[in-house]
Amino acid sequence: MLTLDAITIENGGYAVQADLTIAPGQRVAVIGPSGAGKSTLLGGIAGFLPVPHGRILWRDAEITASTPGQRPVAMLFQDGNLFPHLTLAQNVGLGLRPDLRLSPEQRAQVDAALTRVGLSGLGARKPAALSGGQQSRAALARVLVQSRDILLLDEPFAALGPALKADMLDLVAEVCADTGATLLMVSHDPTDARRICSHAVLVADGQAHPPVETATLLNDPPPALRAYLGQDGLP
């Protein structure tokens, strides 16, 4: 269980507050108006932003003061998820050993992960030689070998077209099923949330609300979300 125990996350001038729990293995969309603090929430959980008040716990162990790398968290950002000068295999290998001194077994594991995401045989390529969708797949292959308990997605597929994005979301759902990871995914698009997330956290006015069922939230959105989604709140 991921517990955000009355935390405040600071991000420059403003702060986001959260007091909620998320069940292990759950897939949760983080939705809300622009600038409400969705990315801030993820940055706090990942350890990139200071949490001066409250505690963050995973399976009853406190991680509030842990560095990003010590936390049971893998995160994909909007961009910069691959090192542009390293090959795909190296980028994926970093998820196993961040100093890249890989054993033969680990190399095999990297190849298997690349195959799993549909990039079989492309391990020697560099990111620039790939399409946007393939780059996303490579980043997901790394998440796969990292096999962390929590996966945070801060709109990594925002630049992809609708069909490609749907493919990626399905792949994310598969990766989560494979690794048993708990997912928190920032999304601007209610269809994304409906597609793979059973639950949703609404972030509005600097407050992250406890998760509710995605369909419930989207079918009868509160005023802040309604204004953001449009007239009737329905996609």
Binding site: F48, G69, L94, Q146
Partner: peptide
Amino acid sequence: QGRLAQSLAMPGLS
């Protein structure tokens, strides 16, 4: 690229 390296727990020398 610092954030990505940190999320991978990459040591400074690496």
